[in-house]
Design a protein around this nucleic acid. Structure first.
Length: 939
RNA sequence: GCUCAGUUAGCUCAGUUGGUAGAGCACACGCUUCACACGCGUGGGGUCACUGGUUCGAGUCCAGUACUGAGCACCA
């Protein structure tokens, strides 16, 4: 077999995905077990405008690891993919394309034509991200792929809108909203992001009082809005302004006269104690305006230029230009009191980052009270959904719900779900599932549909059940029954409000079920500079570049190695670690494969007792006369006399040790993944594979399996190592699907017989192999401690060699003093010890008898090691080495003794603990004694 | 302003019932050891931000301080 020396990720990556997909491995239908428990995840739908970024790669990896493991465990597993229509993003792309290619605006071509272009755009570019998901190895069921504007999902949107309207939760009203002048649409509170700027100004403007030489000073961060002022307010108790309440102000620049009103809202302590009131451009002013019956004067256009309600020389000016001009004019009039630096917090549009303009506007709103309570009750009564990590996410979620305000759901966009409302010529609204229904309600067909569309998050809110076929008319489907609630939602913390909470609310209301059990909130992958990746900072890392450079598997397992929920600063060196790990797996497998003649993958090599039990179960406990020929080959397996000569049942300490380590690892990996502790699972696998399997097990059995002589003992050893490897590959598969599949296919005698019973008929693939759960009965504490002693002996010998500068080619002798039991262990592993310590003989005695010219080391269990170094020993150096060791022991002894002489410790600490410390002190004393003798001998 | 999180080896980070401080990388020394130099062996390196408290015992629990970050509120 020709196997390249270095792992080439591309080769494996190109080979397997399509095969898996064609074989139907991703669909739940592959599972042949009728009674299999289900496991389901619905993907957070990426935007059709998006291309894969590190956040996706992270989330997809985490979802795929869970999905692949559960699938291997025999669950009926579904990971449902899909995409989101992303109305603002697509709209912006299409507008831009239109401008560039044809120099036209959307209004030039009209709504219908615009939507055609938008669909075309979606068809052309909308699958970028789903193609990239194939590259990631994401085992999603493409046959169930959804898009938020699919007919069935759109129908669900209309249905939900109509029902909420009919129940009075959705209404149309005039309110101050967040207006994005660049996207030219309203956005919801949740889509506004506050940004603090230090270069703001607080401008103090003087307003002359009519028929008086008094002026009243107001402060503002947005001077241009004074053009829309319809009052000045002061606190009713403010003595400074008592005589001015009820007077009139001649508003400069406008020629308008406005009243001075008294309102509790004004804080007398802040600024000048007088506030300009602009009801149409500020939410607080709006409220004040309502209380005092003030006019609502809108002074801006939808692109945030000044409108015809402003003086002629302002009309058409951008808001920021107008701002400067207002200040200039006030200065000219001598009415500018001051203009001081001020730190301001500006509302910005989450999507386009431009500054939001609060604006009076008529929109559709959704009152959340009822659905909010459903969600809060679910949390209170069932503590659901369960957040991971629970702190701080559960609180963030709950507090947000408690303070929830009405949701602005209309958008001035064409791309999206049209609002199912029609107006007659008098402007009466008819909300209906279709035009026909609306016409019936209105009693006329002379209706015009609402020009706006719905917030993209409105359809996303239904994603948990609309993806399973719920459309309002159809409310039960096989998938809905089978897969809802899903097991876990994996997503980022930025959309807990925008999405997670809303799915909980709508699913409870419309399906009467919770959408998911768990919510796993991932951290943010930051750039190398520790800041969130962004185009502006140019600190982004493209996952596809990482795939090319380090391989998909290395990238995946690196992403999984990040502690759950923690932010991570991107670092190429970390991913390189896992690229090297992939190569290590490749080469260890290569070694096993190069020595695999006569070997086969057979789990019973790792658990012969299970085979014996199975055979006994098969043929009965007693060997009766009707024992037929066919059974004879089993004889050696159940008869202790024969078993002696059966290599399958004669396990060395090293064999029992690696089997124990393997099972311990499997148990820990499963335990960790059950708690979404991916990083712990990765760490366990990494160290099991690299340290236990490669550094020790391969080295310990190397001679045996590379022996030239083919015989049953060698073949058994080969089968054992290759079976351990195969188990390790299964454990690694959810993290590194391509590498493990590539290698697994090369192993001798792998087939669908290794599959989980649920997939017996399927084409052979590791992704359907039974996931090892680990068997606690195969954890062998004794083998582990015995092997630990062997490892310690070898390590100490190597340490002496390195510190004494003994050439690798120089063979040494090992003199070891140990008790009977330890001697047996060392003797059993003599050849391995000699090889790995580069020694040519090992002498085991009760008491150490070593020449003066020896280097020595104390081992655990009162054992001692000496290496005679006649002519080689550097006494000064050896003294130094031993003293260093003694110093270490001394520090520890002091600390432990301090504890033991502390009466409080001895009397109050658990007896167990005290005994443990005592035992350690004894051990340290023993070692110290040994080393002191060594020093004496050296003097 | 309120709330929360973080502060552990040069770097990036683990450390869940309080009981000998860990990993990877980097660093030093030595290796053509027949799977792997994307490697092998050995080693050095930390008063776990600071102050106080609880405890026989604190990286771990409590209070406070400093710095970093996030969310919410305010923002005339």
């Amino acid at each position: 077999m020709e196997i390249p020396k270095a792992y080439e990720p591309k080769t494996a990556e190109e080979k397997h995905y399509r095969r898996w997909e064609l074989a139907g491995c991703f669909a739940p239908e592959i599972n042949e077990n009728r009674d299999a428990p289900k496991y389901s995840i619905v993907i957070p739908p990426p935007n059709v405008t998006g291309s894969l970024h590190m956040g996706h790669a992270l989330q997809h990896t985490l979802m795929d690891v869970l999905t692949r493991r559960k699938r291997m465990q025999g669950f009926r597993t579904l990971w449902l993919p899909g995409t989101d229509h992303a109305s603002i993003s697509v709209q912006r792309k299409v507008v831009e394309l239109l401008r560039k290619e044809e120099g036209k605006t959307p209004h030039d071509i009209g709504r219908e034509e615009f939507l055609k272009r938008a669909w075309a755009w979606k068809e052309k570019y909308g699958s970028t991200i789903t193609d990239q998901m194939r590259r990631e190895g994401a085992s999603v069921d493409w046959s169930r792929q959804r898009f938020t504007m699919d007919e069935s999902l759109s129908k669900a949107v209309r249905e939900v809108f109509v029902r909420l309207y009919e129940e009075g939760w959705i209404y149309r009203g005039k309110r101050i909203v967040n207006w994005c002048p660049v996207d030219k649409t309203v956005i919801s509170d949740a889509e506004v992001k506050d940004e603090t700027r230090k270069d703001g100004k607080l401008t103090y403007l003087q307003y002359p009082v009519k028929n008086s030489d008094r002026k009243i000073t107001v402060a503002t961060t947005r001077p241009e809005t004074m053009l829309g002022d319809t009052a000045v307010a002061v606190n009713p108790t403010d003595e400074r302004y008592q005589d001015l309440i009820g007077k009139t102000i001649e508003l400069p620049l406008t020629g308008r006269e406005i009243p001075i009103v008294a309102d509790e809202y004004v804080d007398a302590e802040f600024g000048t104690g007088a506030v300009k009131i602009t009801p149409a451009h500020d939410p607080n002013d709006y409220e004040v305006g309502l209380r005092h019956n003030l006019p609502q004067l809108v002074i801006m256009n939808e692109d945030a230029t000044m409108n015809e309600n402003t003086p002629a020389d302002f009309v058409g000016l951008d808001r920021f230009v107008a701002r400067k001009l207002v200040v200039e004019r006030f200065e000219e009039l001598g009415l500018l009191e001051k203009n001081e630096d001020y730190e301001v917090t500006l509302p910005t549009c989450e999507r386009c980052k431009n500054i939001i303009e609060p604006l009076l506007s008529e929109q559709w709103f959704c009152k959340m009270d009822e659905m909010r309570d459903l969600a809060l009750n679910l949390m209170r009564e069932e503590k659901s959904p369960q957040f991971y990590p629970e702190v701080p996410n559960e609180k963030v979620y709950t507090v947000w719900l408690e303070n929830l305000k009405d949701w602005t759901i209309s958008r001035q966009l064409w791309w999206g779900h049209p609002i199912p409302a029609w107006y007659d010529e008098n402007g009466n609204a008819f909300v209906a599932r279709s035009f026909e229904e609306a016409a019936e309600k209105a009693g006329t067909s002379d209706l015009k549909q609402d020009a706006d569309s719905l917030d993209t998050w409105f359809s996303s809110a239904l994603w948990a059940f609309s993806t399973f076929g719920w459309d309002g008319e159809i409310t039960e489907t096989e998938d809905l029954n089978a897969f809802l609630p899903t097991d876990v939602l994996v997503t980022g913390r930025d959309i807990i409000f925008l999405w997670v909470s809303r799915m909980v609310m709508t699913t409870l209301k419309f399906v009467g079920k919770k959408p998911f059990d768990d919510v796993l909130i991932t951290g943010t992958v930051l750039g190398k500079d520790g800041k969130p990746m962004s185009k502006r900072l140019n600190n982004g890392v493209d996952p596809l570049d990482m795939f090319d450079k380090f391989g998909v598997d290395a990238t995946r397992i690196y992403l999984a190695s990040i502690a759950t929920g923690a932010d991570i600063r991107w670092n190429d060196q970390q991913i390189e670690t896992f690229r090297n790990f992939a190569n290590k797996i490749w080469n260890a497998s290569r070694f096993c494969l190069l020595n695999s003649d006569g070997a086969r993958v057979d789990y019973y090599f790792l658990n012969p007792q299970a085979e014996v039990a199975e055979i006994k179960n098969l043929i009965g406990d007693e060997l009766t006369d009707d024992f037929d020929e066919e059974d004879e080959e089993y004889l050696d397996k159940i008869d202790p006399e024969f078993a002696k000569d059966n290599p399958k049942e004669n396990l060395s300490i090293a064999d029992r040790w690696i089997i124990s380590r393997l099972n311990r690892t499997a148990i820990e990996v499963n335990r960790a993944l059950d708690r979404y502790f991916y990083h712990e699972a990765v760490s366990r696998l990494y160290h099991f594979f690299w340290n236990d399997f490669c550094d020790w097990y391969i080295e310990l059995v190397k001679d045996e399996i590379t022996s030239e002589e083919p015989n049953i003992w060698r073949d058994a050893a080969r089968s054992r190592i290759i079976t351990v490897l195969e188990q390790a590959l299964r454990l690694l598969h959810p993290f590194m699907p391509f590498l493990t599949e590539e290698l697994w296919q090369m192993l001798p005698e792998t087939g669908s017989n290794l599959h989980n019973p649920a997939y017996e008929g399927a084409e052979k693939t590791i992704m359907l192999a039974d996931f090892p759960m680990g068997d606690a009965n195969l954890i062998d504490e004794r083998a582990e401690s015995e092997m630990q002693a062997v490892i310690e002996l070898i390590s100490k010998a190597r340490n002496i060699r390195a510190e004494m500068n003994i050439k690798p080619s120089e063979r040494v002798s090992l003199l070891v003093a140990a008790n009977g039991d330890s001697q047996r262990v060392f003797a059993e592993n003599e050849s391995q010890i000699l090889k790995l310590a580069r020694a040519n003989d090992l002498r085991l005695t009760e008491k150490l008898e070593a020449p003066r010219q020896s280097a020595r080391a104390a081992l655990s269990g009162s054992a001692e090691l000496a290496i005679p170094l006649e002519g080689l020993i550097d006494f000064a150096k050896e003294i130094e080495r031993v003293e260093k060791e003694l110093a270490k022991l001394n520090t520890e002894a002091q600390r432990l003794n301090a504890q033991l002489t502390n009466e409080n410790f001895v009397s109050r600490a658990p007896q167990e603990k005290v005994e443990e410390i005592r035992a350690r002190v004894v051990d340290i004393e023993q070692r110290t004694k040994t080393l002191n003798q060594t020093l004496e001998a050296l003097d």
